[in-house]
Each structure stands twice: as structure tokens, then as C-alpha cells.
Design a protein around this nucleic acid. Structure first.
Length: 195
DNA sequence: TGCAAACCATAAC
DNA sequence: GTTATGGTTTGCA
């Protein structure tokens, strides 16, 4: 049985779906309705699930993590994602992405160069990212440093920008990080085009 | 700038 | 097997 929980953290709604010690999906949105809708989309359709008020210890831990993340902190990865049902390629892209630090962004292109495939394929993976925002899909932008798209409704691109600006650590120069697939280029949040 | 064509993994037929 | 579809990129006017 999969259990779904929700909570309002700051000005955002967050929700998680967990089963035993595994995390199926996490998500966030500006409204409770959107948020719940997104979680349900990521739970395999014929799996039984139930929605509950009182968080399990694991859910509690994830909410704590989300809270510190939304306050601008980094994430501790001491829980297990259930992503074995995702394609090999998707797993690879998501794994690479987890290495992008707070205060930096990367591009669809750079991610494609490291994880394989093409920029649009990377976009596909982002669009169906089951672990937002823990797997930081909001830190992926277009190669020209414009903001790019973002899942989940209308004002969501604005939300993406807001999240990134909240994460800005004042870094000045591009860098690269090590991933299981090789080096990945990352850029300071500052590089982002204002528009 | 703005538009068309190439790009690559998936989902739907 | 084939076609359509993106959170894209590039080239060329």
C-alpha cells in the first residue's frame, strides 16, 4: 500500500507518496489541488493508495528535508528513491542532476553531453521528474541562460525563477562537478538572463 | 529577432 | 514498425 501525505511549507504545498521505506514520488506546487494532482500522476495508476493526515516517520523526514531545502539549505540523501520503474536513461539523467549544487544551474545541453542523448530528451525526463524538487529539475535552464520551461501549470516558470534566486549563493564563475557519467558543467545562478 | 530544421527518448497507434 | 510530441538547439535569413 502506498501512502500519500501533504503539508504546507512556507508559501508552497508539498506532497509525498511512500511505501514502507521507499519514496515513490515527491512534489510541490502553489496550491493544494495542483500539488495533489501531481502526486497522483506519478503513482502508478493501478497501485492501491490512501491519503492520510498523520505522516509516517519517513514522510516526516522528507517534509523536514523539504523544509530545510526550501529555506535555501542543501539536501541530505538518507532515504531511498523508488525509481527502478523508470527507464535506464531517465535514471542516468536524474542521477547526474543530483550532483548540481545549491547556487548553481546547468543546461539541458550540458546535461545531455554528460548523461547522453539530446537536449530535448533531457527535457522529457525533467517534465516527468517524480522527485521534484529534491532532484533539482528547476536548476536546468536553456543553453542561452534564459529560464526555459517548468512543469505544473501557469505561473510555474515564475516559481522556477523564484526558487533559483532564493538559492543564489553569489558564485561568480562557471565550474564543473563530478558525476557517475563524467564531468558536468554548472553555472552560477547569477548567469541567468533577467528578462 | 524570428522561423525552420535537426535532435533523441517515449508514448501512443 | 511508424508517427507524434516535447521544460531544446542550431543555423540562416
Amino acid at each position: 500500500m502506498i501512502h500519500v501525505y501533504r503539508r504546507k511549507i512556507g508559501d508552497l504545498w508539498c506532497a509525498v507518496a511512500v511505501e514502507d521505506e521507499k519514496v515513490w514520488t515527491t512534489t510541490f506546487a502553489t496550491s493544494e489541488k495542483e500539488c495533489m494532482q501531481q502526486v497522483l500522476e506519478n503513482v502508478p495508476y493501478n497501485n492501491p493508495f490512501q491519503s492520510e493526515e498523520k505522516p509516517s516517520p519517513l514522510a516526516e523526514k522528507i517534509f523536514d528535508t523539504l523544509q530545510s531545502f526550501l529555506a535555501g539549505g542543501s539536501i541530505s540523501w538518507d532515504f531511498r528513491f523508488e525509481w527502478s520503474h523508470l527507464s535506464k536513461y531517465a535514471q542516468k539523467v536524474l542521477e547526474c542532476l543530483t550532483n548540481v549544487p545549491v547556487g548553481y544551474v546547468t543546461s539541458y545541453k550540458a546535461l545531455a553531453e554528460t548523461a547522453g542523448g539530446g537536449p530535448r530528451a533531457v527535457g522529457q525526463v525533467m517534465a516527468s521528474n517524480p522527485f521534484a524538487p529534491l532532484v533539482p529539475c528547476h536548476r536546468v535552464i536553456k543553453a542561452d541562460f534564459s529560464i526555459g520551461g517548468f512543469g505544473g501549470g501557469k505561473g510555474s516558470v515564475k516559481l522556477k525563477r523564484k526558487l533559483l534566486q532564493r538559492e543564489d549563493k553569489g558564485f561568480e564563475k562557471p565550474s564543473q562537478v563530478k558525476t557517475e557519467c563524467g564531468m558536468l558543467k554548472v553555472f552560477p545562478v547569477k548567469f541567468l538572463r533577467k528578462d
